[in-house]
């Protein structure tokens, strides 16, 4: 254990040196934010408050853990199995269960506030763009374009923009290339075979109520599509859309992918999957009758993060056993 930690730290030190050394010739870099506006960074940010664990994973995977002053919503760390787990555990946590509020962020005096959500201020009390300018911090968010997604492009885009802002483009490109190779391996394998229809469920449907599902413009749907499935509700727009239970019966999904660990779901993990298998509303679908109910944690799929590719491999393995 100790040796592993030492190795991780050594690795970190090496990548840290390799990535951030060329500070001498720093010129301002400009990236576009999610609204299409240009944001200029005269130098690489030094004090970064990361609002959520998804974005913290991206930072640490890019060797930028030492720039993180504090982090909020650390629940996504629970699914991390890679070598960065120890480093994630060492980060200063502002609020573990939610995004930190404006004052807590301001008290850290950040020069950059980072989030994997696509806008600031979405969570109650979390800093808005106007708050960021009040505290003289820049903001960087992961952008999800809004139309149907079939690849993990938003994830790669976010990693590359972080890389550019911190002047670690090479490392970001390497990481993206690595992730893309894994994605392509999955899509190549899935491409030839049949494309089963998939119903994505964030919670157990309740009789008499519309059923929430993930629309084609979300990362969970992108994961299912890239893994060689087709979202059975590929024709709906919006994000957290609700569909009629009748439509589920009519479209008869061959596979159900349960996205677990959402805060609004009463049951977590396997318990949720079991309750969905036993739900009479879904009992007649091909998916339940053939027992093909898979699950993947929202911490792997909800927002852009390197772990999206883990989710992709996990779902692909379930779709094409």
């Amino acid at each position: 254990m100790k040796r592993g930690l030492g190795a991780a730290m050594l690795l970190l030190a090496l990548t840290g040196c390799g990535g951030t050394a060329p500070a001498a010739s720093e010129a301002g870099v400009t990236v576009t934010d999610c609204a299409g506006k240009n944001v200029t960074f005269p130098q690489a940010p030094r004090r970064v408050v990361v609002l959520d664990g998804y974005a913290a994973q991206s930072m640490v995977r890019l060797g930028l853990g030492d720039r993180i002053t504090a982090v909020g919503f650390t629940k996504p760390f629970s699914v991390e199995k890679g070598p960065i787990k120890a480093e994630l555990a060492r980060l200063t946590v502002l609020t573990a269960d939610s995004m930190p509020t404006t004052e807590l962020v301001a008290a850290q005096r950040p020069d950059l506030v980072l989030t994997s959500a696509s806008t600031f201020g979405g969570a109650p009390g979390s800093p808005k763009e106007s708050d960021l300018s009040t505290m003289d911090a820049k903001g960087l968010a992961a952008c999800v374009p809004g139309g149907p997604l079939t690849t993990l492009a938003p994830t790669y885009d976010f990693l590359l923009r972080i890389g550019k802002v911190f002047r670690v483009e090479t490392r970001a490109e390497q990481l993206v290339a690595e992730l893309k190779t894994r994605e392509q391996a999955v899509t190549a394998k899935a491409g030839a075979g049949p494309k089963p229809t998939v119903l994505i469920l964030p919670d157990n449907p309740v009789a008499g109520q519309p059923v929430p599902t993930s629309s084609p413009s979300t990362i969970p749907s992108a994961v299912v599509t890239a893994a060689g499935g087709q979202n059975v509700f590929a024709d709906v727009t919006g994000t957290r859309v609700q569909v009629s239970p009748e439509k589920i019966v009519e479209r008869d999904p061959q596979i159900i992918v349960v996205v677990t660990d959402y805060s609004f779901a009463k049951l977590k993990g396997q318990a949720l999957v079991d309750s969905i298998r036993a739900n009479p509303l879904l009992a007649n679908t091909s998916a339940v009758r053939s027992g093909r109910v898979l699950s993947v944690s929202q911490y792997l799929t909800q927002f852009p993060s390197p772990l999206n590719v883990d989710a992709l491999e996990q779902v692909a393995a379930g779709l094409h056993p």
Partner: peptide, 15 residues
């Protein structure tokens, strides 16, 4: 609200 294209916008609207 139901047709909002991204979840952050949705959250923002509700708040």
């Amino acid at each position: 609200l139901a047709r909002a294209e991204n979840s952050s916008a949705q959250q923002q609207i509700i708040f």
